[in-house]
């Protein structure tokens, strides 16, 4: 177990190195640079800025410096917001994104799993049909359609909830709903499929034969294996939901992390982009590791290798 974790952590290093290098090369190849604006910055000022951030040195030197800094999780100051370290920007944004994503995932699991279980237990009956209708519709309505519709109905017409911002508890409701609906739907589908498969297996039949109630069978035996697909989905989903809720952040003015990925790349804010990409990659890999560990816990048939 310990050796497994250690090995996986060590394997992350070369992967992260490749990602860092790839990102570095790609952003540097992109046309334009960080100090461009509609109004030309005076030549002397621009030269000074390039010098200040070491951008006037040969590219390979910059690369070595960057790798050394990245290894210490220190990407230097953002070019766009020079009084802040990229690290500070990332952590502040991450705190908000993690809260938004955490709520959304919680909602997704709390609603999605029971929906899937009920659908599986009532296969081909009305409840199944209703749950799967919702699930398919939820997957099919993009959140940038859903978000504005929710605002239109609940904020602008009914005046029940704030139209945006991340301040009061009430302001969290709409972005969390808009973000989680797709995930609720998808988790419901996964749970249903997983449960259907498990419910046909021998040990479940045995449990039934022993006279357990259907509820007892599901809660006591089947659920643990039936939600395995959900568990393996949760890793990448958590990474995406935390890092990639760009649309929701924009519609609801949530000061999260996702925007920096886009804004950083578009502004050629090299340090910020490299920081976000590496942060995302490391976060995703860590989550996948956690998922694998959880998987092993839930399914005794799986061995860690």
């Amino acid at each position: 177990m310990f050796r497994f974790v250690l090995r996986r952590l060590l394997l992350m290093i070369p992967t992260l190195w490749v990602i860092a290098t790839l990102t570095f090369v790609l952003v540097r190849l992109a046309p334009g640079g960080p100090f461009m604006s509609e109004k030309e910055i005076p030549k002397a000022a621009k030269a000074e800025l390039l010098h200040r951030y070491g951008l006037d040195r040969p590219l390979h030197e910059q690369y070595v410096t960057f790798l050394g800094n990245a290894a210490r999780f220190d990407f230097g100051p953002s070019y766009k917001y020079p009084d802040r370290e990229v690290r500070e920007i990332l952590l502040q944004g991450f705190a908000v994104s993690a809260e938004l994503g955490g709520w959304a995932l919680l909602v997704a699991v709390l609603f999605g799993v029971p929906m899937g279980v009920i659908a599986a237990m009532r296969q081909n009956r009305a409840a199944d049909f209703a749950a799967m209708t919702f699930a398919l519709a939820g997957v099919s309505v993009p959140n940038f359609v859903l978000g504005p519709l929710l605002v239109l109905v609940f904020s602008l017409t009914l005046l029940w909830l704030p139209a945006a911002l991340w301040t009061s508890p009430a302001s969290r409701v709409l972005p969390v709903i808009a973000l989680s609906v797709g995930y609720v739907a998808y988790i419901a589908r996964l749970t249903r499929a997983g449960m259907l498969e498990v419910l046909q297996q021998d040990f479940v039949r045995t449990a039934r034969a022993k006279g357990l109630t259907e509820r007892g069978v599901v809660v006591g035996h089947a659920l643990q294996l039936g939600i395995l697909p959900v568990v393996s989905y949760l890793g990448p989903a958590a990474a995406r939901i935390v890092m990639g809720s760009i649309v929701i952040e924009q519609i609801f003015a949530v000061p999260g992390l996702g925007r920096y990925l886009v804004v950083g790349a578009l502004n050629r804010d090299y340090t910020l982009v490299l920081g976000v990409v590496l942060f995302y990659a490391a976060f995703l890999m860590l989550l996948n590791l956690i998922v694998d560990l959880a998987y092993q816990r839930l399914d005794p048939r799986v061995e860690l290798s």
Binding site: T15, V18, I19, L22, T23, L26, V27, A30, P236, M243, G244, I246, L261, V262, A265, L266, V273, V276, V277, Y280, A281, L284, M285
Partner: peptide, 14 residues
Amino acid sequence: DVLYALPYIFLVIL
């Protein structure tokens, strides 16, 4: 794995 770990929106933008 590497491409999986890269945020795809970043790839697309570039």
